[in-house]
Simulated assay, not measured.
Amino acid sequence: MNEASLISTALGSVVGVILALTGAGGGIVAVPLLVFGLGLNVATAGPIGLLAVGMAAGLGALLALRERRVRYKAATLMAVAGSIVSPAGLWLAQRVPNAPLMLIFAAVLLYVAARMLMQQRAGANGEAPRQGPPPACRLDALRGKLDWNAPCGCALTASGALAGLLSGLLGVGGGFVVVPALKRVSDIPMQGIVATSLAVITLVSMTGVVASAASGHLLWASALPFTLGALVGMLAGRRGARHLSAARIQQSFAVFTATIAVGMAVKALHGL
């Protein structure tokens, strides 16, 4: 294995660990790590990130499915909506210049970092986890399943479509959209939200990967070692998550994400 493959594998393992710990954050750091670590542009790094994130999320989703934590009907609905929209994002990614695309990515990263820090601070202050009207998607206590209705279906479809668009455009799994969306529109426990998010990420990412491979935009030499690292990182992260504070994970990831965002913005501005 050459030096580039070793670097790619190491970067992928970071993505897998983050994905296992957060259910959302691995995908959004995959592309920046490839941009800085391997010197790729965003459009080239996107499909590689999708493959690695999709495979690692699929492994996590299968393990969670065995534990009966995945809300597979909700995941399927969101994934179908995302898969329909994802090719449009890929089409845009191939036509937007690299520097503006990096600035868009940096803005998304800063938004995610700020939101995670605010959520962590709210939890530290003992604020109520939910405010406002009851969620559109509610669990039936007796059946242990969601009570489906039109508002629930519309909310999940819209969230899945947004995740799909960003998945294709930026090469992210979309978990940073899926997790807060499920928290906002449902009363699913957090472990179930993370598991369902992994299932959505898997299905949406694979749609983007197939489209990228078919159009010849997937760089396999970097994608395979990066994906291998992500799978190893996913297994290691699941084991380590049991011994780490959720608040500390959230805070550390927010700082890490903000740092990457600043770096990408600086790099993008130099390229204008």
Results as ranks from 00 to 15, higher is better:
E3D: 14
E3F: 13
S8V: 07
S13I: 10
G25D: 08
V29E: 07
A30P: 06
V31P: 05
P32M: 06
T44R: 13
G46L: 04
P47Q: 03
L51T: 01
L51K: 06
M55G: 07
M55L: 15
A57S: 15
L59P: 03
G60N: 00
A61P: 00
L62N: 11
R66N: 10
R71E: 15
R71N: 13
R71Q: 14
A75G: 11
T76E: 00
L77V: 11
A79R: 02
V80Q: 01
G82V: 05
I84H: 06
A88V: 14
G89T: 01
A93F: 04
A93G: 10
R95W: 10
V96H: 07
L101K: 03
M102K: 15
L109C: 01
L110R: 03
V112A: 13
R121C: 08
G123M: 14
R130Q: 12
G132R: 07
P135C: 05
L139G: 00
D140L: 01
L146R: 00
D147C: 10
W148N: 02
A150R: 15
T157A: 12
A158F: 13
L162M: 13
L162K: 05
L165S: 03
L166K: 02
S167G: 12
L169N: 04
F176D: 07
K183M: 13
K183T: 12
D187Y: 05
D187A: 02
I188K: 03
I188Q: 01
Q191C: 09
V194C: 04
T196I: 04
V204G: 04
V204Q: 01
G208C: 04
S215F: 09
S215C: 10
L218Y: 07
L219K: 13
W220A: 12
A221W: 13
A223S: 04
L224E: 09
P225R: 02
T227M: 12
L228P: 01
G229C: 05
L231Q: 02
G233T: 06
G237Y: 05
G237V: 03
F253R: 03
A254W: 04
I260N: 10
G263H: 03
M264E: 14
V266M: 13
A268S: 02
L269M: 15
